[in-house]
């Protein structure tokens, strides 16, 4: 019992050692992001299936091999693709 009680502060200390650097990094990120007065917005572009298909070709060319991955839930063919 005494041993378990002695472990508690150690665990708390370990938790702080892990959490504090992460919190500091997050704070730095938010502080730097606060310099950007207006965050980017997505373009209002309703794509037709043909446009979407060409966008996907473009995307496939932009992604490096290690960044490509397949959809685990199985996307199935999108409209307009053969």
């Amino acid at each position: 019992m005494r041993r378990i009680r002695g472990l508690r502060p150690l665990l708390c200390l370990l938790g702080l050692i892990l959490v504090l650097p992460l919190a500091a990094i997050e704070w730095l990120y938010r502080h730097a992001l606060a310099q950007v007065p207006e965050l980017p917005t997505l373009p209002a572009w309703e794509m037709t299936p043909d446009e979407q298909r060409r966008r996907d070709w473009w995307l496939a060319m932009e992604l490096r091999p290690g960044e490509r991955r397949s959809n685990p839930s199985g996307p199935g063919p999108s409209p307009g693709t053969s």
Partner: peptide, 23 residues
């Protein structure tokens, strides 16, 4: 031609090249 990343619900990681361009 195979369908690629076509379904609307499908999302991939941004990819460093695309993120670099946008940034």
């Amino acid at each position: 031609m195979k369908p690629l990343l076509g379904a609307p619900h499908f999302e991939t990681l941004g990819g460093s090249r695309l993120i670099g361009r946008a940034e």
